[in-house]
Computed example of a mutant assay.
Amino acid sequence: MDRSDYEALDAGAVLAALDGFAGAFSLVLLKECDSTNSRLLAELPPDDGRVHVLAADVQTSGRGRRGRAWKSWPGASLTFSALWRFAPDAPVPAGLSLVAGLAVARALEELGVEGVQLKWPNDVLVHGRKLAGILVELTPGRGRVPAAVVGIGINLQLPPDADVEYATGVTDLAACLGQAPDASRLLGLVLVQLHRLFEVYAAAGFSALRGAWQQRNAFANLPVNILGEAEALAGTCAGVDDDGALLLQTPGGLRRVLSGEVSLRLA
């Protein structure tokens, strides 16, 4: 998809959407980047008290969880990463991707998107179809302030011939709202929600946000398969625990799942 008419990210519009939170962020907006997560991890900005954000109109090597690629086209998606530093006693990384998903969900709801759901641990759905994905990576090295790079990709308006696969289908904001929203404003709205929720998370842990996540649980009380690195599990999705672990009701009792890929079990 070669679109020369797409609207590039605009720093002024992002700052306007950030409103009273503008001073909390440092913004770098690029036309093109291989992977915003990889770039931030490779070139960690100095700790100046702000959240450092790197956004790109197009990512040529965007990444998702478990080695998957995040595909990007001009004007088709909002892709960005943010470096969040936490106090030494903050509960990193437990539940961090779930908090980020909740922030995206609230920003989308603010835009008027209906039927927003969260799929453990890192997908945002609308009526069961994938709209956004999240990749959380901790910064390497010992003795540093706990920090994580949170990468987010949101489908704005996918091209008709986009080769994107997801078990329950994909969607974009153009389909949800009738037209794609301004990407710069959306970036600002998501960053505001991230700032608000990460402050709660840093002070009280994921347990303070667990109820809000559960309200949007895409697979609540549904039969699911857990496909992970070790054994495959099947059971009923019973929500999430106070640390963000998935709770699975199995014939052998309640199980906690800390990582894996959740998919609906076929009837």
Rank of each mutant, 00 (worst) to 15 (best):
D161S: 10
G75A: 03
R210D: 08
L247M: 15
L254Q: 15
R65I: 11
G75S: 03
H127W: 13
L191Q: 01
R3K: 04
V14P: 01
L40C: 04
L40V: 07
V116L: 06
A76F: 04
H127M: 11
S61D: 12
A82R: 01
W213T: 05
E32H: 04
P160N: 06
A218G: 02
G12L: 08
L189N: 00
V99Q: 03
D163I: 11
S35K: 11
R142F: 12
V164F: 14
L83M: 09
A208K: 00
A203H: 14
T171K: 03
A103K: 03
I154P: 01
L118Y: 06
L40Q: 07
F198E: 01
R129G: 02
V150L: 15
G133P: 07
D47R: 02
V224N: 09
I134H: 10
G67L: 14
L258V: 10
G235V: 04
N217V: 03
D48T: 05
A13D: 11
F198L: 13
P160W: 10
A183H: 09
K130A: 07
A232G: 13
V28R: 15
E7N: 06
G143D: 06
V116W: 04
K119D: 01
G153Y: 06
A8E: 14
V51F: 07
L197M: 08
E165K: 06
